[in-house]
Write a protein that binds this DNA or RNA. Sequence first.
DNA 1: CCAAAAGTGTTCAGCTTACACCCATGA
DNA 2: TCATGGGTGTAAGCTGAACACTTTTGG
Lengths: 237, 237
Amino acid sequence: MKKQSNIYHEHHYKDKDRHLVAVDSIIFGFDKKRLKILLIKRNFEPCRGEWSLMGGFLKKEESLDDAAARVLYTLTGLKNVYLEQLYTYGDLERDPGARVLSTAYYALIDIEKYQEQLSNKYSAKWWDINNYPNLIFDHNIMVNKALRRLRRKTRTQPIGFELLPKKFTIPQLQTLYEAIHQKKMDKRNFRKKLLSHDFLERLEEKDKRNSKKGAYLYKFNEEKYNDLVQKGYGFEI
Amino acid sequence: MKKQSNIYHEHHYKDKDRHLVAVDSIIFGFDKKRLKILLIKRNFEPCRGEWSLMGGFLKKEESLDDAAARVLYTLTGLKNVYLEQLYTYGDLERDPGARVLSTAYYALIDIEKYQEQLSNKYSAKWWDINNYPNLIFDHNIMVNKALRRLRRKTRTQPIGFELLPKKFTIPQLQTLYEAIHQKKMDKRNFRKKLLSHDFLERLEEKDKRNSKKGAYLYKFNEEKYNDLVQKGYGFEI
DNA sequence: CCAAAAGTGTTCAGCTTACACCCATGA
DNA sequence: TCATGGGTGTAAGCTGAACACTTTTGG
């Protein structure tokens, strides 16, 4: 009986098909004005020379999350980016080179903050979200899904922490929301709503890069925010 | 140069690690009263005899979606169930038997409708959502994520089409929502809100199984619903 | 002193919520 | 006839949206 169960065991793991698994990352960036995505020119066949998301293959000894981080670092030098899993694409024909599954990740980063990391020794390039080239395989579909997800998420959860510089002004934050949702918002209502939830903290510093008057800098109060989340909290912008 | 690109090609596909990939499905069921999940007793090592989600391995020649459907059919006899992808679990240690990725799917079905398909020749069993046994691996985590997703989805999208009998009464629908969200709702407000969106159509028939008076049966008007979705529409319950 | 962005309150409409009684019917 | 679940309207509070002027200061 013991013996038989071992046979069973082997049957259920050893004889199964094994698959190539890729990770592909949609990196959204914000440069204080517009929403962009980071793309790279593919340098191997098939589709060499075409534009693509940051992608690579999952290794034996790493988790999916780790693989996404490693691939991003290898291709762009970007480190410590908070990546969130989006979806796994598993159609047979999605990659013409072989049967490859792909788990897509996405992130939203502050372009300026990562500017130096993303030096020009890498061939990754920022493209405007409204004007980027056709991508290989199903990568266009991935980008669209990521955009929808980003929009949904930022309607009910504050972007910050991972996604913005530590200090930011309300007008900057509003520009970011406007870039993501592609529509103008009323600055009085925007400010009111954000400040009504208690997780923004005004500093005494001002940022005078965009105006003579200067705008107050704020930072997220992560503690207060986590408290609220605990209580099953959600806000709408 | 051509030759080199072929080497590159082989390098990028042939030499990569290959992985076991499983699909696991969280099947929510509704029996006119309470929300349940369908579980199965695992009959191979490791963890033989413990309770588990419906799971199996992805094969070479099938898509992830197809695999989820096949596995569900094999283990339960259930066919034509609309499965939605939830998340892919990729930690190294999640399955103690081997390094296995798992893409989780979930569905919500009408238990009575599938009652005959799920004959007792299968060892799957329905459990109350508030009282089910501990599951193997990370399956508890999967169920929790699926529940959260189901709740979010049903707050802004009508459950129907795939998820309910073709004909249903408003009180039945309300009971389903109450089971999913685990709270009582006001029947006047519930009815009002649902009917205000135009996608429910009242039939002349009544369902008298639950009361002497009988409740009108309704059906979804899929056309009208799709029109609304097209226009970037979302509702709240 | 003036151009340019930051900052500030109020009003109105629409939506959400709370709430109680009559109806139809089978037993 | 009565017990049971089905069906209906209204008022109050709250939330989201629209809207215009004053403040600050570098050039």
